[in-house]
Nucleic acid binder design. Structure first.
Length: 561
RNA sequence: GGCCCCGUAGCUCAGCUGGAUAGAGCGUCCCCCUCCUAAGGGGAAGGUCAGCAGUUCGAAUCUGCUCGGGGCCGCCA
């Protein structure tokens, strides 16, 4: 709807240029946007306000000329000039009827677009090291990342979901030592417990399984435990497999699946890190000092240079990060998005600087980042800090078990990632209108319920007739639903462009509210067959859009509740 | 010392990248099914958009400074 109006205004502007009302070649970045209030019509443009200066005329005079030059359209019922020089468009009932027919025609495809033109995009998210269960923060990353992927898919991108994990570094060595200590019956605080050992109860579970000779399947491999508590390497492999499997189970329960698991160890195995170092040296952005090799990241906006290779010969963490991103680029992802916790913020400049220093044609803003702020969990008005299993943090599994998958996903994705998030377990558990998830899903179930009633009452719904009678839907509640429905394609476009899945959640709440109000004020199954068909067709359109939106968030659209 | 995010109704938060009279839910108060699910709906009260200055036709939105909350800044990952 919006695009068509944009075209009409552009045509009018072109005509004014030819007439000489505005100087030839004038181009302004005017917008056509939704109005806030119905008094101002459906859409408004600020074109006249922006043209006033180049034309040397008053905004309202330009507006008059612009309106006069507007091509005729059956979709526009009325055009008004208002305020300082806004041009307000009132759409015809036929324009909305056309949109509803489009919803029925496209079904599950309605709202999707092809802006990505089937190009490759990669989203890396979660990427938790296999040293413990996933916690709430990872859950937020999983929900946001997965919804971002769904949004990009809906806008025509070919998306790969990738999970990167460190399977060889110091943290993993620490994990192995912790499990070994547990195998020996040593507990935290006791003599012999490793300095920075992992203290969670899950370490004991791993130790027990290892000693019992259990076989664990993870990442396509089987790993079996033994009684040998001296073989630290075997313990490490077993522990990583155990925790990887646990994370996979949690993610599956959360409805999140990955296409690629990328192991940090493979970067070393395939000499990717060495190659990157050599390439950086060759590009001339490095120097040696104090026995270490430095990268001049200050050439690319960092506040100080960074060490790449320590004086003891080992690499610092950011080098494999750069090498890893080189593989992303070489794998053909013209678009790469990293969804991470805000505590990783400082790596952005460095990774990008490293990639720029390679001088291999990678754009400056590549990769893109979506960072989410911290999550605090509340229960009974108090902050929850402990998980029995993991120790010092609340796990994703705890939340799924307590609040359910859909509510957990909703609450973790419904807030802007930039904002700190308070997860209220009590609210998420509530099965009432207080809980926005149920509110939205209930709207979907209500439409299904009406459709079931038709059969029970022996009433027939003639969909085609309904779609032909849509202009009979003229009460305020139906108008509100029509407007909300027609906004959906714009919503998908904006949410994807801004990488802000929370907008989908806000939208669904609004659409559900419009529907509930309508449902409450009017009956659908009435004697007037034409009006009944029209209402049932609008209800079905609402159901389709609700289902499509819920799908974008990875949530179920229940037939009944 | 440097950097990032946040500050909007009592509470939790939207506000579509600068538009017209700032929105929703919860909470408080009042009201609505003999009827497709009351897991719902209607109404009232509630605001110095943290503060100050600037940019312009126009600022919650952009810029600078100040104040508050959170996070990051290592030859740790």
């Amino acid at each position: 709807m919006k695009d068509q109006l944009q075209d009409l205004v552009q045509q009018a502007l072109t005509r004014l240029c030819l007439e000489g009302t505005v100087p030839n070649g004038t181009s302004v970045s005017f917008v056509v946007e939704r109005t806030r209030s119905r008094e101002h019509g459906d859409f408004a443009t600020n074109a006249a306000l922006l043209l006033a200066k180049p034309a040397g005329k008053k905004p309202r005079d330009v507006a008059v000329a612009l309106v006069a030059a507007l091509p005729a359209s059956a979709r526009i019922a009325k055009v008004e000039i208002a305020g300082p020089g806004f041009i307000n468009f009132f759409l015809s009932p036929e324009a909305y009827a056309e949109e509803v027919r489009s919803i029925h025609a496209h079904g599950r495809e309605y709202g999707r677009n092809q802006q990505g033109r089937d190009r490759k995009a990669q989203i890396e998210f979660v990427s938790a090291n296999p040293t413990g269960p996933l916690h709430v923060g990872h859950g937020r990353g999983a929900a946001v990342g997965d919804c971002l992927a769904r949004l990009l898919e809906a806008t025509g991108w070919r998306v790969t979901r990738e999970y990167y994990y460190n399977d060889a570094g110091a943290q993993i060595a620490n994990l192995a030592l912790s499990v070994q200590a547990r195998c020996h019956g040593i507990e935290p605080e006791q003599e012999g417990w490793p300095a920075d050992g992992y203290r969670g109860a899950y370490i004991s579970d791993v130790a027990r399984a290892y000693l019992a000779g259990e076989t664990v399947h993870a990442d396509g491999h089987d790993v079996t435990g033994t009684k040998d508590t001296d073989d630290l390497d075997a313990i490490r492999r077993f522990a990583v497999a155990c925790l990887r499997r646990e994370q996979d189970l949690d993610l599956r329960a959360f409805g999140v699946e990955f296409d690629v698991y990328y192991l940090e160890s493979s970067l070393y195995a395939e000499h990717k890190v060495d190659e990157t170092v050599q390439a950086l040296i060759a590009a001339g952005h490095t120097y040696e000092q104090d026995g270490a090799l430095w990268l001049k990241t200050t050439d690319f906006g960092d506040d100080k240079d960074r060490v790449m290779r320590k004086s003891d010969g080992a690499y610092t963490y950011f080098l494999p990060d750069v090498a890893y991103h080189v593989t992303k680029w070489k794998r053909g992802y013209g678009r790469a998005i990293n969804e991470q916790g805000a505590d990783h913020h400082s790596t952005i400049t460095r990774v990008r600087a490293g990639l720029q220093a390679l001088d291999m044609g990678i754009p400056k803003g590549w990769p893109e980042y979506v960072l989410h702020q911290m999550v605090t969990v509340m229960r009974g008005g108090e902050e929850v800090k402990l998980s029995k299993r993991a120790g010092s943090y609340v796990t994703l599994r705890d939340l799924i078990d307590e609040a359910g998958r859909d509510a957990t996903r909703w609450f973790l994705v419904a807030r802007k990632a930039d904002s700190q998030l308070t997860f209220d377990i009590d609210l998420a558990r509530t099965q009432s209108n207080d809980n926005p998830v149920y509110y939205v899903q209930y709207a979907h179930a209500r439409v299904c319920s009406v459709q079931r009633q038709l059969g029970e009452r022996g009433v027939e719904w003639n969909r085609e007739n309904g779609l032909a009678q849509l202009t009979r839907l003229d009460n305020e509640h139906e108008q509100a639903v029509l407007i909300a429905l027609s906004r959906y394609p714009e919503l998908v476009e904006i949410a994807a462009a801004n990488l802000e899945p929370h907008m989908v959640a806000s939208y669904l709440s609004e659409l559900a509210a419009a529907f509930h109000a309508w449902y409450n004020a009017h009956h659908f199954i009435i004697d007037d067959a034409d009006l009944r068909d029209a209402r049932l067709s609008l209800a079905e359109a609402t159901r389709i859009v609700l289902a499509n939106g819920l799908e974008l968030l990875g949530l179920g659209a229940p037939q009944s509740m």
